[in-house]
């Protein structure tokens, strides 16, 4: 059994004295783990930083074995974000959420492409928080918890959609919300694909996606708490937008 692909490194765990078990996210093989001989050594450890783009060759005697990777660095993304508190928190949230949510060895090509676009924009383009927010929406969709934001769940209208129902994940219009408005989640225009967005709108969007990640993905599907890195990112973003 063997294959060759490219992928982003999600996590590294030391294995024995010199080796490491890594998890990568590839286009054709999804989230995939494997052993890297010498992965904890001086030569490879700097290469194996979360977010790094790697050329991967995986080999195992049987498909169900964990197998071993031979890795070649293609692009280090850590250096671009290390000096930027928010971008580093974003990188940690992306890698933690993918490691948490994706089933092993199941391809998600659309999510892979969205992840590559996000990782490449982290810390290098001004508007990456909006890319991140839309990526979370895509992650929910890919995991089977897509929000239905096309029309109001109460009135059916497509206009003035400003809330999301925490129960159904459907959009609700201002008129349809009535007295229930304070129990609904915010639906900023950027979640409907209408940009550019202010930091306040992105923070509101993160509250909404965070709610569904926590309740649906972590709570109902996986039955464990969301990685702390996601909360740290949304806290860092709230502080960052408060300062501006």
């Amino acid at each position: 059994m063997d294959w060759r692909d490219q992928g982003a490194l999600l996590s590294v765990r030391r294995h024995g004295e010199n080796s490491a078990i890594i998890e990568v996210f590839t286009e054709a093989h999804g989230r995939h783990a494997g052993v890297v001989r010498g992965g904890a050594g001086r030569k490879l450890a700097p290469v194996l930083q979360p977010g790094a783009q790697l050329d991967l060759a995986w080999r195992a005697r049987l498909d169900e074995h964990i197998g071993s990777f031979t890795v070649e660095p293609l692009q280090s993304r850590a250096a671009a974000v290390m000096g930027d508190r928010l971008a580093l928190a974003g990188l940690n949230a992306v890698t933690a959420l993918l490691g948490f949510a994706l089933p092993e060895r199941e391809a998600h090509p659309a999510l892979y492409r969205a992840t590559m676009a996000l990782l490449d924009s982290l810390g290098t383009t001004e508007g990456w928080p909006l890319v991140y927010l839309r990526w979370e929406l895509g992650l929910l969709e890919e995991m089977g918890f897509g929000l239905d934001l096309g029309s109001c769940a109460v009135t059916g209208t497509r206009d003035d959609l400003v809330y999301v129902s925490p129960k159904s994940g459907r959009a609700v219009s201002r008129a349809g919300a009535g007295d229930w408005a304070d129990r609904l989640l915010p639906l900023p225009p950027c979640l409907l694909g209408q940009g550019p967005a202010s930091n306040d709108e992105i923070a509101a969007g993160l509250r909404t996606t965070g709610y569904f990640l926590e309740k649906w993905l972590a709570g109902e599907l996986l039955g464990k708490p969301l990685p702390a890195a996601r909360q740290r990112f949304s806290d860092a973003f709230a502080r960052h937008s408060g300062r501006r």
Binding site: P46, V47, Q49, P73, S76, A78, A79, A80, M82, G83
Partner: peptide
């Protein structure tokens, strides 16, 4: 040197 180190050094 890897590209990350070179980019950090340049910065």
């Amino acid at each position: 040197l890897d590209d990350g180190t070179i980019s950090a050094a340049l910065k």
